[in-house]
Design a binder for these strands. Structure first.
Length: 325
DNA sequence: GATGCGTGGTC
DNA sequence: TGACCAAGCAT
């Protein structure tokens, strides 16, 4: 392994995140691996026809889909994605809107801060990159809402570059097929990043297909709950299966509590504001949750996150003004 | 590194 | 039926 995983140029000063998180190896040819051909061949046969995979989606379509797919299933993303791209076909179109419109159009996809960040990313793309989604991993990573995964995914899927794209699907496939355990650790480890780099095909175009193919395999066959090994193209090579599918051992995977949390209250408050045409009186918001302390905390949180804008007279609405404007 | 952050489908 | 799960990010 080379000492510096990236040669990323043009890292602007405001990029505080470490460039070393870029999983792209230097240009040295990666080794061919026994998993590559069967997984890629399977992908050619079984890949879903998703709108963001079509050529007309372009880098912006890929980026929008990646934001929406962060922790949200494909089936729920599809209709919102279509509406979004029809309404805002270019980053500048979205950037010209009030951020509250993005939050409203986000609908019930969940984690609405993603809508705000996508709006912010569109604004940054418009201001800093002439309206074109940047190609450089470091420039993508500097956009709001874009982390290591999304930067690699856009660079790979939209621009065909060679990056290790390490999402939850790929992590699970690698854990099973290569490492021989049922589930990857809670947090992505250095060992997983190293493995992903080692498995990355040396050829750029092959690496990009490998990224999409290994992710699709995890999504359709090597699923978390019930992997369908009978339909897996690498069942004969899978370390986990060959070891007799040992049960998960180690710390339990992090669960997600929801009922009774601030998150639930925030969701109810924002649902009211999304449906409302104009500003909403506090008294109406008060009806969504009967515990006043938690209700107030949730509303304050939404305001400080920029998801809700307080007006005079105890009125609230989705944000019409840009943060800092 | 551990937490907080929405929503709905599944078994 | 209540966990568990779904192409993560920011702090």
């Amino acid at each position: 392994m080379t000492a510096s995983p990236s040669s990323s140029p043009d890292v602007s000063p405001e990029v505080s995140r470490e460039v070393s998180r870029d999983l792209t190896p230097d240009a040295s040819a990666g080794p061919s691996h026994a998993l590559h051909s069967p997984v890629i061949a399977w992908f050619e046969q079984h890949a879903r026809d998703l709108p963001w995979r079509r050529p007309e989606a372009g880098p912006w379509g890929v980026m929008v889909s990646e934001f929406m797919l962060q922790q949200t299933p494909v089936s729920r993303v599809l209709p919102v994605y279509e509406q979004w791209l029809a309404r805002w076909p270019r980053p500048a179109d979205l950037a010209a809107e009030a951020p509250g419109e993005a939050v409203r159009a986000w609908g019930r996809l969940g984690y609405p801060r993603r809508a705000l960040r996508l709006h912010g990313a569109a604004a940054a793309i418009t201001e800093r990159h002439g309206g074109d989604v940047p190609r450089e991993h470091a420039q993508l990573l500097a956009l709001p809402g874009v982390g290591e995964y999304t930067a690699a995914a856009v660079a790979s899927f939209a621009y065909g570059q060679r990056h290790a794209v390490l999402d939850t699907n790929v992590r699970r496939v690698f854990a099973r097929a290569a490492t021989g355990v049922e589930y990857p650790p809670n947090a992505t480890t250095a060992a997983e990043r190293r493995l992903a780099r080692e498995l990355l095909p040396g050829d750029e175009a092959t690496a990009a297909r490998w990224a999409a193919a290994s992710m699709e395999l995890g999504a359709l066959v090597c699923t978390a709950k019930s992997p369908d090994c009978a339909r897996c193209p690498v069942a004969g090579l899978c370390a986990w299966r060959l070891a007799g599918k040992p049960a998960h051992d180690g710390p339990p995977r992090r669960g997600q509590t929801y009922a009774g949390t601030d998150r639930q209250v925030r969701g109810k408050l924002l649902a009211v504001l999304r449906e409302a045409v104009g500003p909403v009186p506090q008294a109406v918001l008060d009806t969504v949750w009967n515990e006043p302390v938690q209700r107030a905390r949730a509303l304050d949180g939404l305001v400080s996150d920029g998801l809700v804008e307080p007006l005079d007279g105890g009125l609230y609405r989705l944000p019409q003004t840009r943060p800092g404007a």
